[in-house]
Structures are given as C-alpha cells and as structure tokens.
Write a protein that binds this DNA or RNA. Structure first.
Lengths: 120, 120, 120, 120
DNA sequence: GTGGTCTAGACCACC
DNA sequence: GTGGTCTAGACCACA
C-alpha cells in the first residue's frame, strides 16, 4: 500500500480492509491482524491503525474482544456492500453522468477511453 | 449552493464558476461579480472567495485588472473543457469502472438507477 | 472539573458538555469553545478535547464548520435527553431495583439514606 | 452469562458468584467449582477465572486450600452484603438521584417504568 | 484563527 | 500477548 492519496491514511486503511472483505478474504468471526501488526506491516503509527479499526467498529463491520483482538462481524460483507453501493449510487453516479453530459462524452467513447488507459 | 460536500469550499466555488463557463453563461472578457459580491451572495468569508478566483486565475481561466475586477479569459471555455476532460478521464473514470465491477453493477443497471434517482 | 473518575477523560468531557446542554447553557447553532480553548481550560491535551468533540459530533449533538468551530445541533437538547433517558431506563434502572431487592432496602430507607449522605 | 457489558470479565464473574452467595446458593466451607470448570463452563480463559477467584479471596469471601480447591468463607455472606451495601449507598445512590432529577423522573414514574420493562 | 491528522512514546487494564 | 487512553508536539489545509 502507498498513501500517496490525499485522503487520511486511516480511512485508506479502513477502505483497504473493506475491499478485502468484499473480496471474501476473511470469513465472519475470523480474527484480523492485531493493531500492532497492521502498524508494523503498513509502516504506520499504531494510533493510526487503531483509528481505522475504530472507524470500522463504529460501522459494525468489525467487533472487538478485550485483550484478544478484532474480528469480522457476521454481517460485515453485507454492511460493506450496502455502504459502498449507497455511496456509489448517491454520490458518484450523479456526478459521473453530469460530467459525462457536460463534457459531451457518449457511453461508447467512455468504454473506448477506458480500454485505452486502464486495460486491466 | 450548499457546502455540505467535504471538498474545500473555495474549490466548490471555483467548480461552480467553471460550470457556468462551460454552460456559456459568460463570454470572453466579460467581467464577473466582484469578490465582495460573491462573498456576500454565497455567505462566505471574502478570503474564501478570493481564493477561488486566484485558483482560476492560476489556470488562465480568469484574469484580473487591478482596481477593476476579474474577467473571463479568451480561452476560458477551452481551458476548462480540457481540464475537466483530463480530470474525468484520468481520475474519475478508472475509479468508476473499478467500483462498478467490485459492486457487481452492469452498464444497463446503472442507466436504470440513474433514471430512477436523478431524472433531470 | 476533576478526572478522578476512572472513565476515559474524553468521555467525561463529553458528558460534561451533555449536562451543560441539558441545563440549557447553550442554544442551538451557538458556537462552543474551540478545541484549543477547552484543552487549555481543562488542562488536557488538545487531542483529548478533540476526541470528546468528535464523539458528540458522531451522535449529532454537535456539528462542525471547517475553519470556524463547533456548534450545538438544532436538536442537541432532545438528542441528549433521549440518550440519557434511554441509558437510565435500560441500564441503570434494572440494576438499581435488582440491587435494592437483593440488599433488602425499601424505598423509604433509600430516601432517608440519600438525605443523610448527599443533602444537596 | 453474556459479557456484552464493558466491565472487566473477571469482575462480572466475581459479581456473579457474589450474587449466588447472597442468594444462599452455597453454605460456608462448601467447595465451589474448580477454576478449570468455571473456565470451561463460561467459555473464558482460565487466567480470567483465576483472577475472579483471587479477587474474591482478597476480600475474604473465598479461601483456598492448595491442591484441593476454593471454598466459601465462614463470613462470606456478611462480607458480600456489607460490600454491596457500601457500594450501593456510596456510589450508585447519589448518581441515581442526580440522574433522576436531571432527567425529570418522579419516583412513581420510575416504579411504572420498572414494571413495564422488567416485570420479574 | 479554526479543526484534522499523524508520529512517537508512554502507561494501563485485561486475557 | 491484546486493545485503550493519554501526552507532547508537529504539520497541514482551510476560513
């Protein structure tokens, strides 16, 4: 991971974990790396790692057992999917279509542009 | 305008002016509202309005005559269009397609969603 | 304020602000002391003060304007009252009555005890 | 038992034993379940169970015979009753009355609320 | 001036 | 070992 983005690091970490969950990397009730491990691996301050975990805990994506660690919530996948979908539909989609119209792009042009620049 | 967005206010203002330019509201060399007027109308700190104008001036969208006011550049429309297209293609498009895949939306679904929520 | 309690300081601060709100010390949309001021006055680290404000912001008791300060939400009083009542009824009340029974206190005994020890 | 409470688990366990004692479930010098049994039954780390027993031993509610087990002290009932009463009067009562006033509850309202929610 | 974030490092309670 | 909290102090963007 690189944090070249200008979003707060802790949110980028949280987002990274969300993506892992969406990609089914973890199962419900599975223990995820300790705060300290995350901090070491990502070369961040433990406080920053803890902040990401707290953020996800507030949204019922993670839960915590005292002295044991952080765990994936039962409904983590659904929670994340719902959040991301909502964000996508309510915030990104409108702007996208608005820009598309305003800049005079057609759907086929976009497909082409996409293939050109990011053929992954 | 509301500033509920969490982008910097001065950028939201600048963006608003860009959109006006794209919509041909102003012609080259036309004088736009004074910093003070903008500040009053948008209920914003004058410093914030100034910052928006400076931002657009840096990008040759506006020019300034001391003691007179701010004016639309000759090539403002083209500049803005170019900037927006670049930003759209390089930054928004990739994220959009990535999200689309990850969240399992098809192009037709998106069209439908768009019509549902933002039929404008 | 003293923090002799063993609850986290930031929660004690948040609670203190809640009480002020319940006592109508502030009106909706009124600006409350800046993070720095609180930190200085209460002799705490600014981070601790900020944490209290964030906590209350998460619960829609406060809101924030970038670069300006923190403000009392329109519905702050009702929010706080609702929260406190709920906490009282759901968490404190049952334990209280359970203890009362288990320890063999009658209501009149309690009134008497209360007057003896905390006549305020 | 569930440990959804945020008090330390070992204290919750200790409290549970105290309640059993108050309810005369055990008689003086009776042997109580082994640390291992408690740990297994409550699905808890043995260290946590030990800690609960140590805590009660420190307060002369339990005593220990090496290699045999933990036993109820002669004066366990009185000790527990005294502790609980003291805690109740000094710590819970004042907060209870303070909250009651602040939230505008009358004694009769509370009785009613109590009957509604926890008719046991 | 405001708040937001981050680092470094400490101490604590708990399992 | 785990997480939770706090301090000290820095830097940044924004109004």
């Amino acid at each position: 991971m690189d944090f070249s983005d200008n979003r707060p690091i802790y949110l980028q970490i949280a987002d990274h974990f969300c993506n892992q969950i969406l990609n089914k990397k973890w199962t419900p009730d599975e223990r995820i790396p300790s705060v300290r491990d995350v901090a070491v691996q990502l070369e961040v301050n433990p406080n920053t790692a803890i902040r990401a975990y707290h953020f996800l805990q507030d949204q019922d994506v993670l839960y915590n057992e005292r002295g044991v660690g952080y765990f994936i919530s039962d409904h983590a996948f659904d929670r994340v999917l719902e959040m991301k979908r909502k964000e996508f539909i309510m915030e990104k989609l409108p702007g996208f279509y608005r820009d598309m119209k305003m800049l005079g792009f057609s759907a086929s042009e976009l497909d082409e542009l996409y293939r050109e620049h990011h053929m992954d």
